[in-house]
């Protein structure tokens, strides 16, 4: 039983920003049984739990190309634009991102502020 514990915890993905925790089954760019699909970054991948098809996968997260922190693919934690950036790094280098992305982020910020107040 104790062994089981270690086994399952050793393959757990944890987002360093939001703490999202979930077991993963593969790390890399070519998840098994995905045929012609290639990931453009090294990802933590699990089988898509919401699909009845066993061969569908779900990317949980990957590492930030700048700071190497492990982040989930959630909009609040990271974004992908040719590479993966964690939100902290995005904010640090915001000016280098195209205006489409900047505008989107600003809009999101406004919305979350409105939600809080």
């Amino acid at each position: 039983m104790e062994q089981n514990t270690h086994q399952s915890s050793s393959k757990t993905f944890i987002c360093q920003l939001c703490d999202l925790t979930s077991p993963y089954s593969y790390y890399g760019q070519k998840p098994p049984n995905t045929r012609a699909i290639v990931l453009l970054e090294e990802c933590f991948v699990t089988r898509d739990p919401f699909s009845p098809d066993k061969e569908k996968f779900l990317v949980l997260g990957s590492t930030c190309s700048l700071c190497n922190s492990c982040v989930c693919v959630g909009q609040d934690c990271s974004l992908f634009y040719t590479k993966r950036f964690c939100m902290r790094c995005v904010n640090k280098h915001l000016d280098q991102f195209p205006h489409q992305i900047q505008a989107e982020l600003a809009k999101k910020k406004d919305r979350s502020k409105a939600g809080v107040s």
Binding site: I37, V38, C43, F80, T82, F85, D95, Q96, P98
Partner: peptide, 25 residues
Amino acid sequence: GKSSKMDIGLPVEYDARYRINLSVC
């Protein structure tokens, strides 16, 4: 940006395609 900080190597022109982290053969 280039002048002030380090370049994070993003393409000059925006393309929504760049936001997708997978490709398909």
